[in-house]
Design a protein around this nucleic acid. Structure first.
Lengths: 217, 217
DNA sequence: GTTTGGCTCAAACGATTGTTTGAATATAAA
DNA sequence: TTTATATTCAAACAATCGTTTGAGCCAAAC
C-alpha cells in the first residue's frame, strides 16, 4: 500500500483509497490518511480527482469497466447453457478475487444516498442490466418479465458476492482456509445451485420456454 | 421521523438514527443531524448511548434479537422440509420488509472494520450460525462440512437480501411497483430457486443423505 | 535565456466533528 | 416540603474535515 513509488501518484492514490474505503467505508477515511499511505501531498487529491468524491467516482467507473468486460467475454461465446452459467460464475468469482476491494467499495455504495454519484450509479447499473438481458434471453427467462428479472438477477449476483461480504466476520469463526481449493469448491457449488434453481424457475414460471434447458435431474 | 414526541427520547434517537444510517451510512451522519430530526439535544446521544458508536451497537443488537426470534420460530415447528424453506423465506422477507432500515444498517456494517463493534459482530454472527446449524442438519447438509456450509448459508441469505440492497437503484430503472403482489412473487420465486438449488447440492455433494428430500423434478 | 505548462508542496481557511461540562429543570422518593 | 436522582440544556472544547491558495520546482518548447 503506497510503498511502490515507481507508480504514478494518481494510481497510488486510487489504489490506496480502494483499500482503505473497502476496509472502513468511504466516509470514515479522510484525505490525509489516503495521502499519507499513498505518500503524496493531500492537495494531490483535488488536483488529480477534483476532491475526495472524485476518487469514489473513479473507483466505481473502474469497477464497471472491468466487470462489464468480464461479462461481455462470456456472452460473446457460443456455449451450452450450462457452460455459460459455469463460465459466468467462474469468471465473476475470479474477477472478484482479483478485485475484491474494488468490488466491495462499489457494491457498498449502491444502497447509499450519495447525491454526487447517483447519476453515475443509475447509468452504470442500467448498462449492466442491458448487457445481462441478452444472457437472460438465452435462458428462457423473459427480460421483459421484469418481476422475475428483478428477482433472479440480484439474487444470483448477491449469492456470488455473499462469501466476500461475510468473509471478514466468517474468517474469525469458521477457521476455513480460503485457498484455491476452497474457491474451486465455491464455484462448483454455486454453479450447481444456480443450474438447478434456474431449472426450477423456468419450469414453474415459463414452462413454454423450458424446452431448451437440459435435464439435470 | 422524530415527529412523534410521545415516544421516549431514547427511542426517537434510535429510530431516527436507523433511518439516517440506512440512507447515508453511519459515518456520513452526524450527531447534530440525528438530534435535530429526533428533536432532542445532542448531549442526549452521549447520555443515552454513551456516544455515537453506542447507537450503532444498539441497532445491531436490536436487529439480531429480532431476527433470531424469527428464525427460532420457524425452527421450532414440525414441518416438511419444503414447508420450512417456504416458511423461512416468507418470515425473513416479511421481517426485512418491516425492518428494512434496521437490516440494512446491520448488514452494511458487516464487512467494515469498525473496532468498537468487532466483538459484537463476531459474537452475534456466531450465535446465528449455531442456530442455523440445526436447520442445516434437517436438510441433509452436514454442518460440520464447513466448506459447503460456508458457501450455501451466506448465498441464501444474500439472495433474500438482494432485492432490498439493489432496490434504491433498481427503483429508478425498472419501473416496478414493489407492492404486496411483488413480494408474494418474490417469496415464491426464491423458494422455488432454493428448493431446486438445494436438491442439486445434496445430490451432488451428499448423495447418501439425500433420501429424505422430496422429489420436485 | 525566457516562457509555459504540469506537478508538488505547506500553510491556511471555514466548517464540521463527537464529546464534555456545569447549570437548570423535571421527576421520584423520603 | 425537602432531598435525591434523572433528564435536559447550551456553551465550549480540541480535533478533524475537505478544499483552496500561492509559491516553488522541473521539463519542454520557443
Amino acid at each position: 500500500m503506497g510503498d511502490d513509488k515507481t507508480k504514478q501518484p494518481r494510481r497510488r492514490i486510487l489504489e490506496t483509497a480502494i483499500t482503505l474505503f473497502a476496509q472502513k467505508g468511504f466516509d470514515a477515511v479522510g484525505v490525509r490518511e489516503i495521502a499519507k499511505h499513498a505518500e503524496v501531498n493531500i492537495s494531490m487529491i483535488s488536483y488529480y480527482f477534483e476532491g475526495k468524491i472524485g476518487i469514489l467516482k473513479a473507483i466505481i467507473e473502474e469497477f464497471h469497466n472491468k466487470y462489464f468486460e468480464v461479462i461481455s467475454q462470456v456472452l460473446s461465446r457460443s456455449l451450452t447453457q450450462e457452460q455459460v452459467v459455469r463460465q459466468l460464475v467462474t469468471q465473476i468469482v475470479n474477477f472478484i478475487r482479483e478485485n475484491t476491494n474494488l468490488t466491495m467499495v462499489t457494491i457498498h455504495s449502491l444502497p447509499l444516498d450519495i447525491p454526487e454519484i447517483a447519476a453515475l450509479k443509475t447509468d452504470r447499473v442500467n448498462k449492466l442490466i442491458d448487457g445481462i438481458g441478452e444472457l437472460v434471453r438465452q435462458y428462457g427467462l423473459d427480460p421483459d418479465n421484469k418481476g422475475v428479472f428483478a428477482i433472479v438477477g440480484p439474487a444470483i449476483i448477491s449469492s456470488i458476492l455473499a462469501h466476500f461480504r461475510f468473509k471478514p466476520v466468517q474468517k474469525n469463526i469458521l477457521q476455513i482456509e480460503f485457498d484455491d481449493a476452497f474457491y474451486d469448491r465455491y464455484i462448483d457449488t454455486l454453479t450447481t445451485f444456480f443450474l438447478y434453481g434456474l431449472k426450477g424457475i423456468i419450469e414453474k414460471y415459463q414452462p413454454a420456454k423450458g424446452d431448451n434447458f437440459e435435464n439435470h435431474c
